[in-house]
């Protein structure tokens, strides 16, 4: 090997390694590419691996009983199939449910303290308790404490307009997407309405993905 070709090889290797390192550093610094466009609150309302092949987006209303059923199933399937599903919960408080908007806002406030999931589970599991009350908002603070939220920040968030705006924006975006009722769940981009057909749709999507991976 001549001196010039050795020099050329060394420079080429150095440039290629440097370029590859730049990609790896950029990947490490950036949020996961799949969630790069999402706000922090949306990321907090997600479970599973963002790199998973199956994305499920659930539009829910905290006062809807079928949403509770769908949510419980989705959480369990994400847990049972690690790495295969990325689940994201979005709010679609129906106008017909008088407490749904306030409940969604309180869940958004929990997400802002990175405690969305415990709070979300409490709201759903105690749905029958608070949804029958005339003014259930008094219970939010106790659920927040139980979910490990800081009371002062939670109270300030509930009084702040920005959480409300986020929820209303999400509802408007969903309506523009064609969501009309809850639960509406997008399983790999395909809408499933209601909880009854959900397990079947999720299993079919997972099977399709595993067939594509193995073929």
């Amino acid at each position: 090997m001549t001196r010039s070709s050795l020099r050329s090889t060394l420079v080429t290797v150095a440039v290629l390694l440097g370029a590859a390192a730049a990609v790896l550093v950029a990947r490490g610094l950036a949020p996961h590419p799949a969630v790069a466009g999402l706000g922090q609150s949306a990321i907090e309302r997600s479970l599973g691996d963002p790199g998973a092949r199956l994305w499920i987006v659930e539009y829910l209303d905290y006062q809807c009983a079928a949403c509770r059923e769908a949510s419980e199933y989705l959480e369990s399937v994400v847990e049972q199939r690690p790495g295969e599903i990325y689940l994201q919960v979005r709010s679609f408080p129906m106008r017909a449910h008088e407490h749904a908007l306030e409940a969604a806002i309180s869940a958004e406030c929990a997400a802002r303290q990175k405690r969305f999931w415990p709070y979300h589970r409490l709201l759903l599991s105690r749905q029958e308790v608070w949804s029958r009350l005339e003014k259930p908002s008094g219970l939010w603070a106790s659920y927040a404490a139980e979910a490990g939220l800081r009371a002062d920040r939670f109270k300030a968030c509930l009084e702040d307009e920005s959480a409300r705006r986020t929820v209303l924006q999400e509802r408007d975006d969903a309506a523009a997407l064609g969501v009309e009722g809850t639960p509406t769940i997008y399983v790999g981009g395909e809408p499933v309405i209601g909880a009854a057909l959900l397990p079947q749709a999720v299993e079919a999507a997972l099977d399709k993905n595993s067939r594509e991976t193995s073929s």
Binding site: V23, A26, H32, P33, A34, P50, G51, E212, S215
Partner: peptide
Amino acid sequence: GWTKLLSAPGKFASTIAQYDVVSG
């Protein structure tokens, strides 16, 4: 190349699949 390398894993694979020439 850079935008593809930093985009979601599987995104470019599904783009390739659209062309219906190679799979798996």
